[in-house]
């Protein structure tokens, strides 16, 4: 992120310095304002879902959901931390239901727990699953198409599902493959 931020900011500054120097500061301020507005929107989403998830947690509901999914999670993410497994299962359930806003706090919690056991493999895997978007029904897009007078706003559901399944599946497979190669190389070096 550091490299990307530095390169993009410097290049953009250079270009704007040459072509439209007066638009530079307004753009920066506008960006900051958009960031704050985004945080406000996010806070509303997090407040609702973290409030509810706290209730679910204190009543033991989260543990019950996690217990159902934990055998699969434990193997796939190679973690023994039951709280991390709970957060991961909640994250994936929220993603599948299409409440992406609720998924983020669970993911951050899981990643924090995994940091405790230095499990970078599981952190990256969870990041990949979330960043390639696993969603059963693309609600936002359907709403947008319906608003613009589409005859069949829902007809993109199946292609979207296939495309997102391919991207998630592919990314997970490539990552696991890369990890295996790394592992093998490390073994060879040790020998």
């Amino acid at each position: 992120m550091n490299v990307i931020f530095t390169i993009i900011t410097a290049l953009s500054a250079l270009i704007m310095c040459v072509f439209e120097p007066s638009a530079f500061l307004p753009a920066l301020l506008g960006g900051a304002r958009k960031g704050v507005e985004c945080c406000l929107t996010l806070f509303c989403i997090y407040a609702v879902w973290m409030g509810l998830s706290q209730v679910a947690e204190e009543s033991g509901l989260t543990k019950r959901v996690a217990a159902m999914l934990s055998p699969a999670c434990t193997r796939f993410f190679r973690t023994g931390d039951s709280e991390a497994v709970g957060a991961i299962s909640m994250n994936i359930s929220c993603n599948l239901l299409g409440i992406g806003g609720a998924a983020t706090p669970f993911a951050v919690k899981a990643i924090g727990r995994l940091e405790g056991e230095k499990n970078e493999y599981a952190q990256n895997l969870l990041f990949i699953i979330n960043a390639t978007s696993i969603q059963l029904i693309p609600t936002t897009v359907i709403a947008l198409r319906a608003a613009e007078g589409s005859a069949a706003a829902h007809d993109i559901t199946l292609p979207s599902l296939i495309a997102t399944a391919i991207s998630t599946g592919l990314a997970v497979a490539v990552y696991i493959f890369c990890e295996k190669i790394k592992h093998r190389r490390a073994k060879k070096c040790a020998m």
Partner: peptide
């Protein structure tokens, strides 16, 4: 988030 948004904004505004 503010940093990411600032970056995106000038990425767009500079026509980069």
């Amino acid at each position: 988030i503010v940093c990411v948004f600032i970056m995106c904004e000038i990425f767009e505004a500079s026509h980069l």
